[in-house]
């Protein structure tokens, strides 16, 4: 690592000289980033893992009345080209808002932990930047 440092403007301190990254390394890093984007972000989307947490509860007989729609609502649905059967897909789909203490705590720890660690390591790197800049 000794050759990675060079004197900084005659002050005897050493500036960090980063290694040059070759073409192979750059290609590998780019592919790694792409794999990360596609595996961590796109794959869960296409597999349906990240879809909104919903449930469908339809009445036994589907009519505008059983769907709880008044005359005006019915008219607006029909203007959108929907029958009661079509509209039931929308009306009977509900979000499930269940607060599970363990999953909530886990999510909170992930977000807080992420920020704490990023700021901590960023601070260590920042100290190096400042030391070198203000020598």
């Amino acid at each position: 690592m000794a050759k990675d440092f060079e004197p900084l403007n005659g002050q005897g301190k050493q500036a960090y000289v980063p290694p040059e990254q070759g073409a192979g390394g750059q290609i590998f890093d780019t592919i790694f980033l792409l794999v990360m984007i596609y595996c961590v972000l796109l794959l869960p989307l296409t597999l349906g893992i990240t879809a909104g947490n919903t449930v469908v509860k339809k009445p036994e007989t589907i009519t505008w009345e059983t769907l709880g729609q008044n005359k005006v609502m019915q008219a607006q649905w029909e203007k959108l080209g929907m029958t009661a059967e079509d509209a039931s897909e929308y009306i009977c789909t509900h979000f499930i808002y269940k607060i599970e203490p363990i999953s909530l705590a886990f999510t909170a720890i992930v977000i807080i932990g992420y920020f704490v660690l990023v700021i901590y390591f960023a601070g260590k790197e920042y100290q190096e930047v400042i030391n070198e800049k203000f020598q």
């Binding site: 972000l41 869960p44 909530l104």
Partner: peptide, 12 residues
């Protein structure tokens, strides 16, 4: 987290 908790975790 309410409704899209898994997506939040995927992004994190």
């Amino acid at each position: 987290y309410l409704g899209y908790g898994m997506e939040l975790l995927a992004l994190m």
